[in-house]
Design a protein around this nucleic acid. Structure first.
Lengths: 186, 186
DNA sequence: TAGCAAGTGGGACGATCGTTCAGGTACTTT
DNA sequence: AAAGTACCTGAACGATCGTCCCACTTGCTA
C-alpha cells in the first residue's frame, strides 16, 4: 500500500488546495456571496471546469473551504496558548493581541470565519468545524470555574463580532482591560 | 401641509412594508443568499416588478430590510429592560429568557440578525443600524463599571452566536448561571 | 508498449438572475 | 373634465450562473 506516489494525484491534490485557498481569498474580499465557479477559477488562475472537477458542487467547495479555514483557526489558537505558556503568562496579552490583529490586518479573514459560523448555523455538517477552535481552547486550558470559562469563550466571540462593526478596529490596548476582566479569577 | 392623505401613496407604502416583511421571511428561511427579486415577490404575493419599483436595487431592498429588522430588535431590547425594571429585578431572568427564545422558537430571526452584522461589517452604511440594540442597552442601563458592561454586551453576542451552532438550542435554565455571572457586581 | 487512470480545459446548454420598458390603472389637483 | 402624478405589471433583454460533455494530455501499470 503506497502512500501518494502518483504524480497525477499529487498535482491534483495541489491544485485542489490552490482552489481552496483562492476561494478563501474570494470570501475575504467579497464574502460567500461572491463565490462562484468563475470568480474562484479566475482567482486561482485555473479554468472554470477545474473547480467543478475537484469539487462535485459549489456547495462542496464552500464546505471544504470553510473546514480548511476552521482548521487554520484552531491551529492559531493552539499556538497562541503555547506561546502564552512558554512566557508563563496568564494569556491576557496574547489574547488581546490576537483580537486586535483579527480585527485589523486580518479583518477579511475574521469576516470569513464568521460567515462560517452562519453557514454552520444552517448546515449541521459544518458545525464540528465551526466549533473546533472552541474545542481546542476547552481541551488545552484548565478551567476549574466552568461558568467563568463559558463567559470567557462567549466574550471572545462577542468582542470579535462587535469589533467587526466598529468604524475603526480597536487596538490591543483598548481591548486589554476587557480581556483582563474576562480572564480574572473568580 | 397635509399628512399622507393620498390613497395611492398610502397603499404604496403599505406594499413597501409588505415587501420588506416578505424579505425578512426569506432571509430567515434561506439566508441573505436566498434573496432575489423573484423569491421575495413570490413570498409577498406581488409581481416581480413591484419589488424593483419600490426599491431601486436589490441592495436597497436588503439594506431597508435589515434596518427594519434592527429597529425591531432594538424595540424588543427596550421592552425587555422595561419589563425587568417593572419587576424590580436585575434582569438576569429576563435576559436568559430572551436568549433562550432567540435560539429556540426565533432561531431564524436570530440568524437573520447576525447576517445583518456581517453585512454591516462590509457596508459601513449599515453599521448604525447594526449597533442600535447596543446603543439602546448602553443608554438605558446604568453602568458604573465600564469594563464589566462591555463584557456583558460581548457576552450576550457570544452566547447567541455560539448558541446558533449548537446541535440543540440551550434552555433558559442552562443559560441562567452564565447570565448571572455576566450581571454579577464587580 | 498497450491499456488504463487521473487530471485538464475549451465550449456550450438551460436556468436564473437584476433590471428595464411601455402600457395601463387609480387617485389628486386644477 | 382635463391634466398630472403615483403606482401597478406583463414581457422581455442581456448577463451570469452551475453544470455538463468530450476530446486531450500526462503518468502509471501490467
Amino acid at each position: 500500500m503506497k502512500i501518494q506516489t502518483d504524480g497525477r494525484k499529487i498535482r491534483g491534490e495541489k491544485r485542489r488546495t490552490e482552489i481552496i485557498e483562492a476561494t478563501l481569498r474570494v470570501i475575504e474580499r467579497d464574502g460567500v456571496a461572491g463565490v462562484t465557479h468563475r470568480t474562484v477559477a479566475l482567482e486561482a488562475g485555473v479554468p472554470t471546469t477545474s473547480t467543478t472537477y475537484h469539487f462535485s458542487s459549489l456547495d462542496d467547495l464552500l464546505v471544504a473551504t470553510l473546514i480548511s479555514c476552521a482548521r487554520d483557526m484552531a491551529t492559531e489558537v493552539y499556538w497562541m496558548i503555547d506561546r502564552a505558556r512558554s512566557r508563563g503568562s496568564r494569556g491576557a496579552e496574547e489574547v488581546a493581541g490576537l483580537l486586535a490583529e483579527a480585527l485589523g490586518p486580518r479583518r477579511g479573514r475574521t469576516m470569513a470565519e464568521y460567515e462560517l459560523y452562519l453557514l454552520a448555523a444552517r448546515k449541521p455538517e459544518l458545525r464540528p468545524a465551526a466549533r473546533r477552535w472552541l474545542d481546542v481552547l476547552t481541551s488545552m486550558v484548565r478551567h476549574d470555574d466552568e461558568v467563568a470559562f463559558r463567559v470567557f469563550l462567549a466574550g471572545i466571540d462577542g468582542l470579535l463580532i462587535q469589533g467587526l462593526i466598529d468604524d475603526e478596529p480597536p487596538s490591543a490596548e483598548e481591548l486589554r482591560p476587557v480581556v483582563d476582566y474576562l480572564l480574572k479569577p473568580a
